[in-house]
C-alpha cells in the first residue's frame, strides 16, 4: 500500500525549477525559445530521454529476473517523477506550436501522462508486499488467518481483563484484518481494472514513442541535413 506522495512533490519542485529557467530564458531572448534553438532543442532532448527512462527502466526492473537492483516502489517513484518532468520539458520544447507529427506526439504525451495518473491510483488498489510485489488472493487469505490466530492469542475482542497495551495491539490487528478483507473483496475488480488500464496505456505509449522518434528523425533531416 502506497502511503507517501514524495515522488509527486519532487516532480512538482522540478517542474517549478524548470519553469523558472524557462521564464529566465524567455526574458533573456525577449521571446519564446524556439524549438530549434539551443535551449529548445536541449529541453526537448532531455525531456525525451526522461520519457524514454520512464518507459523502459521501471518495466525492465519489474519484468527482469536478473536485474533486481533497488526496491520496486523506488523504481515506481522514479517512473512517476520522470513521467511528469520529462513530458513537461517536452511541452516547453514545442514553443507552443502543435503542428504535424510533433503536435500528435505532444497530444499523445499529454494523454499518456493523464493515463499514468489514473494508473497510479488503480495500482494502489492492488495489495503488495513492502517490496511492491503483488499479493495473490491465497496469500491475503493466509495473512487474514494469521492475524486471526494472533488476535485469539491476545484474547480478542478487546476486554477489560487485558492490559491497555494488549488491547491496543488487538485493535491494530483488527484494523489490519479489515483492510485485507476489503482488498480481498475488491482484488478481482482491481486486477481487472489494472489489466484494462495496461491494455490502453501501453499501446498509447508505443504510438507516442514511434511518433516521437520519427519526429526527431524528421527534424534532424529537414532542419539539419537539408540546410
Amino acid at each position: 500500500m502506497r502511503q507517501s506522495n514524495r515522488e509527486l512533490w519532487m516532480a512538482f519542485i522540478a517542474v517549478v525549477i524548470i519553469t523558472l529557467v524557462y521564464l529566465f530564458v524567455t526574458i533573456t531572448l525577449a521571446g519564446v525559445p524556439a524549438a530549434s534553438g539551443f535551449f529548445g532543442h536541449s529541453i526537448g532532448v532531455l525531456g525525451f530521454i526522461l520519457m524514454l527512462m520512464t518507459e523502459t527502466l521501471y518495466t525492465i526492473r519489474k519484468r527482469s529476473r536478473r536485474a533486481r537492483w533497488g526496491k520496486m516502489s523506488s523504481w515506481l517513484d522514479f517512473h512517476i517523477f520522470t513521467g511528469i518532468v520529462g513530458p513537461f520539458m517536452v511541452l516547453l520544447h514545442t514553443s507552443w506550436k502543435f503542428n504535424g507529427l510533433a503536435g500528435i506526439a505532444l497530444l499523445l504525451t499529454i494523454i499518456i501522462v493523464a493515463s499514468g495518473f489514473i494508473g497510479r491510483y488503480i495500482y494502489t488498489a492492488v495489495p503488495r508486499t513492502a517490496d511492491g510485489i503483488t499479493l495473490e488472493a491465497d496469500e491475503i487469505k493466509q495473512q487474514i488467518l494469521a492475524i486471526g490466530a494472533e488476535m485469539e492469542k491476545r484474547g480478542a475482542p478487546p476486554n477489560a481483563a487485558a492490559s491497555k497495551q494488549v488491547n491496543r495491539q488487538i485493535k491494530q490487528l483488527v484494523r489490519q484484518q479489515q483492510r485485507l478483507r476489503r482488498q480481498l473483496g475488491s482484488l478481482a475488480t482491481a486486477r481487472r481494472m489494472l489489466a484494462l488500464w495496461h491494455a490502453v496505456h501501453i499501446p498509447i505509449g508505443m504510438v507516442l514513442f514511434t511518433s516521437a522518434f520519427i519526429h526527431a528523425g524528421a527534424a534532424f533531416y529537414y532542419a539539419t541535413l537539408l540546410r
Binding site: E55, T56, T59, I60, K62, R63, S64, R65, R66, L101, H198, A199, I202, P203, I204, G205, M206, V207, T210, S211, I214
Partner: peptide
C-alpha cells in the same frame, strides 16, 4: 509469470506501433 522483455512489448503494443507506422507512411 515473469518475463525478460519490457512490459511495453505486448501484442497490443506492437500492433498499435505497426498501425502508427503504416498511418504515418
Amino acid at each position: 509469470m515473469k518475463t525478460n522483455h519490457p512490459g511495453c512489448i505486448t501484442t497490443s503494443g506492437l500492433v498499435t506501433t505497426a498501425l502508427a507506422l503504416v498511418a504515418i507512411v
